[in-house]
Design a protein around this nucleic acid. Structure first.
Lengths: 341, 341
DNA sequence: ATGAAAGCGCTAACAC
DNA sequence: GTGTTAGCGCTTTCAT
């Protein structure tokens, strides 16, 4: 007997072929393109697959076809509830297919993003999903030439590599700042956690909105280098009130912060909304239930995930993916925390 | 010229070998087991790798070696903040290695779990992480025979397939119920969202704790078929008070619910903790900051993720993985919401 | 310490 | 509609 090689022991396509009395390629075709095989053969193969308990080997498939069943997703953070809603949408749709989702974490680093992108590309992914529109030159080149569908998510911008689905963070924050000033607040602050491209754009929307009315002051803009959490919001309210004891409202870059601000107001005996207005961002479920309920900007996080994955699947199935760039918009949801009037 | 096959165009190990003036297998060894090639060769190969921009093909590697670089993770839900903390821990540690994490979602279904397990196994994963200890027979068989390290996370139990890291949900809920009764609450309810093995065990801990003092009443136990959210907690408080208007405290299966209960108490003008006591579960960051601050049971979610991944990496590196079963414990954190005395 | 040959399991290319 | 052949890029086995 010749030297023994490995062979996981699992049945291979050849085993199925033998069992069905056909060739390996026929099994392959029966499985992948059933239409190109006669009904009889198809039944034969199906039966053999079942009796053998055959599962195709994805590595062999990828090697032979130069295409894996992996859809790579690059997000800046796995924790952040914003991304976790979007991930839920991605999974929800991917689970209707046989593709596998692989998530990687850029940790807000462009260098890391490029490294991870190369790593994904070495797997010849079926599709790629990346967050935002500010890829550095290296990543941009990789994405432009990627041999698979690419979707940029969460933001939209002028020059998609391929497809895009998101909304304008600038416009959303601008709408929020206009709401606060319309409610009669005059010394409005801005609280942000760890700064990234999107929070920076939200700040410029906030600024644009208030500058139009002569209400903007950089002294009331706070960023942190920590991740966004409820305790951070509480701490930041304290800092804001130290900087400007007259501050009468805040736009929080994130609902976590807004909730922290609310609790800190309760602790200090500050009346919300009369003494102080609070607006969050994203509209997670706690906002509607808080007491007082918290104004926020509802963003289409789940839908971004769903549509991004759906676009990729459509393209991979050679179907019409629909519009290549999709602005899913946002909704300002006024609630008690800004109902001053 | 012969028919052209694919060839992604990317440099292969052969290209590097030619460039370095060695054979392919030497390149392979220089990359994987540098100790087995001479220092000169190693340098030659390293230089060639750099000039060619070589990245190994994971599919070819997996096919030839019968082992992929994928670590499969099975969780019941991607959304749930409990699991997202654990996922963060997993990623945190996996990012120190070259392994790739692939997450799949059982959606609390044992059938789905078995299907996903088969799918993972077809990739010959480097490791497998599964949630809980209640795998159905089919999954159990697959895990017992899995040709890779396996870690069961979040709970601990008597018969590990391989390794385990978690804590006792029964004990944790028991401790919480004893705390509530020690604080003088007498008509204590239990709020749960969608029921799974862990929440069921928490209920039995709750029950065991209160039955010892004759304080348990099934009429005050509520489960929902919805996922755990803040609004659900608010709604469930209403239902509890309908069922028993005299109810004076709740153990919430999840901090989300506890927060909802707090807001609903505020809305109804119920004094917390005098009129009503609230205890959550998990101790997410909002609990300490809420007003009043909320008692909870701190669970080692992040650490479970970190240790699970670290155990797998240790085994894959042929190092000592440490204890095979790890009870990471929990901490009851008493705060204002139960400070009745 | 290095290499030659074989082959992992599958599919692309070209028959018929 | 089905089969044959070759080969994807790597590692294993055996040899030196």
């Amino acid at each position: 007997m010749a030297r023994k090689r490995r062979g996981s022991g699992n049945p291979t396509i050849m085993d199925v072929a033998r069992e069905a009395g056909v060739s390996a390629i026929t099994v392959s075709r029966a499985l992948r393109t059933p239409g190109r095989v006669s009904a009889d053969t198809r039944a034969l193969v199906a039966a053999a697959v079942r009796t053998m308990g055959y599962t195709p080997d994805p590595a062999a498939k990828a090697l032979a076809s130069d295409r894996s069943d992996i859809i790579g997703v690059l997000v800046p953070s796995v924790t952040n509830s914003v991304f976790s809603d979007t991930l839920r949408g991605l999974f929800e749709v991917s689970e209707t297919s046989d593709f596998r989702v692989q998530i990687a974490n850029t940790r807000y680093s462009q260098a890391e993003e490029e490294r991870l992108l190369r790593s994904f590309l070495s797997q010849r992914p079926a599709g790629l999903i990346v967050t935002g529109v500010d890829q550095a030159a290296g990543s941009a080149a990789l994405l432009r030439d990627a041999p698979c569908p690419v979707v940029q998510i969460t933001e939209i911008g002028p020059a998609p590599f391929d497809m895009m689905v998101g909304f304008s963070h600038t416009q959303a924050a601008r709408a929020a700042s206009l709401h606060l000033s319309a409610q009669g607040y005059r010394r409005i602050g801005f609280l942000g956690a760890r700064r990234d491209e999107r929070s920076t754009r939200r700040l410029s929307g906030f600024r644009a909105g208030l500058e139009g009315q002569g209400l903007y002051s950089p002294a009331r803009v706070l960023f942190s280098d920590q991740p966004s959490t409820v305790p951070l919001g509480a701490a930041q309210l304290g800092e804001l009130l130290t900087r400007d004891p007259q501050a009468d409202a805040v736009l929080c870059n994130n609902d976590d912060l807004a909730l922290g601000v609310l609790f800190e107001c309760q602790r200090r005996g500050i009346d919300v909304p009369r003494g102080f207005g609070i607006c969050g961002f994203n509209d997670i479920d706690v906002m509607a239930v808080a007491h007082p309920s918290l104004t926020s900007v509802r963003t289409p996080r789940l839908e971004v995930g769903r549509q991004a994955m759906a676009m990729i699947l459509a393209r991979l199935a050679d179907q019409d993916p629909g519009p290549m760039v999709r602005d899913l918009g946002f909704d300002l949801v006024p609630r008690d925390s800004t109902a001053r009037i």
